[in-house]
């Protein structure tokens, strides 16, 4: 039988996610990508002691999601990771920073994105690469990847910023044409994550270039990265998120 790729492709049908038109399914936002939520019985000081990255601060009673690596050690101190604990929309975690450029409809329905790795463990890179697999298929949203910062509208930064990459990151950012957006993906890019104390770590990404949207996670799921990109371009508002 002749082996025709196109027919094989058609035979497999549609696998693509319905997000952002529908709520992400539990497979798209896996359990490990759900953030901790304090239950009424939560012991904040025990949580602070358990937390390896100091994301839990008992004095202010907040969880800094930029630091959280979703290791679930705080579950013993009464922090819950169940889907039902804090409403369904908490699965979507991206947030707009104070930089103030995100959320404006500058780019319409087309966006060219470039990814730069500044010292990641490769998991975030792979999740960004996964965005072009049939399950997430970014091009259906008019978003495509580009190889050169000179063609890019948005920059996805992954990884704990290494001292060797500080200058590279700055020059990449500077060679992008205006207007431009920066999305930092993963705990490492936002705060350094578990590598905050390591000798290669320079600083959080936002200390070097202005960041418009942060997507916490370790690594965030592809749907959460899509949410970050849509938030940056103003195609998704936090209040109307599915």
């Amino acid at each position: 039988m002749p082996k025709i790729w196109v027919l094989r492709g058609l035979k497999k049908g549609v696998l693509t996610s319905r997000f952002p038109r529908a709520k992400p399914t539990s497979e798209e936002i896996p359990e490990h990508a759900l953030p901790p939520v304090p239950t009424p019985q939560a012991d904040w000081s025990a949580g602070e002691k358990e937390c390896p990255t100091d994301a839990i601060r008992s004095e202010e009673k907040i969880i800094d999601m930029g630091l959280c690596v979703y290791c679930r050690r705080c579950s013993s101190a009464g922090f819950s990771f169940d889907e039902g604990a804090g409403g369904s929309s908490r699965a979507l975690q991206a947030s707009v920073t104070a930089h103030g450029k995100a959320g404006k409809p500058v780019f319409g329905r087309s966006l060219h994105v470039m990814m730069i790795d500044v010292g990641s463990c490769n998991a975030c890179n792979l999740e960004v690469l996964n965005l072009s697999n049939p399950y997430y298929d970014l091009t259906r949203l008019g978003i495509s990847f580009t190889n050169s910062p000179k063609h890019a509208d948005a920059l996805i930064v992954v990884g704990a910023l290494n001292r060797a990459m500080v200058d590279v990151l700055r020059r990449t950012y500077e060679s992008m044409p205006e207007p431009k957006l920066v999305v930092s993906v993963g705990a490492c890019a936002i705060s350094g994550g578990v590598f905050r104390g390591s000798e290669g770590f320079a600083s959080p990404v936002q200390d070097v270039i202005p960041v418009d949207v942060t997507v916490p996670g370790c690594p965030p799921s592809p749907v959460q990265i899509i949410e970050g990109l849509l938030l940056a371009t103003g195609r998704l508002k936090k209040e109307t998120a599915p």
Binding site: D117, V118, G119, S120, G159, A160, N162, A164, M165, V168, F195, G197, S198, E199, G200, F201
Partner: peptide, 10 residues
């Protein structure tokens, strides 16, 4: 070593 974090020492 562009992204060496120094896991062994940390």
């Amino acid at each position: 070593n562009f992204k060496k974090r120094g896991v062994e020492r940390s």
